[in-house]
Write a protein that binds this DNA or RNA. Sequence first.
DNA 1: GTCTATAACGTGATAGAC
DNA 2: GTCTATCACGTTATAGAC
Lengths: 192, 192
Amino acid sequence: MTTAPRDTKREILDTAEAMLQERGFNAFSYQHIAERLGVKNAAVHYHFRSKADLGVAVIERYRRRFHRWAERLNSEGPHDPWGRLEAYFQIYFAFLHSGNRICPSGVLQAEFESIPEEMREASRVLLEDLLGWLTVLLADGRERGAFHFLGEPADQAMILGSTLQGGLQIARACGPERFEAAVEQLRRQLKA
Amino acid sequence: MTTAPRDTKREILDTAEAMLQERGFNAFSYQHIAERLGVKNAAVHYHFRSKADLGVAVIERYRRRFHRWAERLNSEGPHDPWGRLEAYFQIYFAFLHSGNRICPSGVLQAEFESIPEEMREASRVLLEDLLGWLTVLLADGRERGAFHFLGEPADQAMILGSTLQGGLQIARACGPERFEAAVEQLRRQLKA
DNA sequence: GTCTATAACGTGATAGAC
DNA sequence: GTCTATCACGTTATAGAC
């Protein structure tokens, strides 16, 4: 029985992703990552030439993971709109309970003007995917009589997306209960 | 006729506030402020010993300004709930049209784990004031039959606050129309 | 693939002249 | 109140040995 070989590249991505969600892109360095993994910062540069490259890789991986999550939901998950919406909420509750992490898309937008252009482009694409998924869910759920709301699905998706993203941020300053209350309020709105 | 004497301290606060909302706290330096004002970085340190002091001063000033805004709204502004809510929306539209600035409270929460503790405390207080004001407005507006929503006013305030905060951030990545659409959707919800 | 060593620069901050 | 000069340190990034 052999020990699994160490996958440094993957560990760097995991660490960078966690630090991005915990502290922001401008508040962690190659040193921080190297120290946490017990390697030297040159090793990190070997896997990701520049910090911008690392940032883009983190965003793209997150986006691919979201697509896999969505595909799995299609094949194995609940098919009713409410079950699917709750599954989406669950992503954010998991962040909340993993050390007050916030939405990666949100932190990148907050720092939008001070991150490399390549990362801005990558986070634009990620955001469109997230809002697009919500829009389709809302449109479909209303057609099937599960959700109730006025206006366009894309606009209601903005309310949901903004509330989840903003709510996680607000929870840092005034506690997780406020996020839970916000999500409960979203549920109430869609039931009415 | 004499020229107004230069108020460097105030100009530093203005510049720091703008840079906070545009780039985030971790993405501007004393050098940046000094260069923009045409002074040396030692001059900035003369007015604010540390960057944490400067950060706290920016937050506190913003909070005082919000209170003056609220008092003026009580004395001179519209007294009907809808007029008051639109006045609040206007604060965020002004940010949107001043170079994609985002809510100061939001950017501080996004960087919460990487800013000095004194700033965290100050931004907690600011957030409570903002959400508190919205909560009172919603409670009052519903009593008077102007707003319609289910659940507690504090929970609906989370939806409004999160959507405005998150919406400004999202607008950076996908355009100002999306923020306007989100606000319009908020209006629709409260009218129903 | 990881290391040591180092470059080139930006950072927050201070001392002391004017 | 602003300046010059400087400090100690952290940052991204690279060259070359192992």
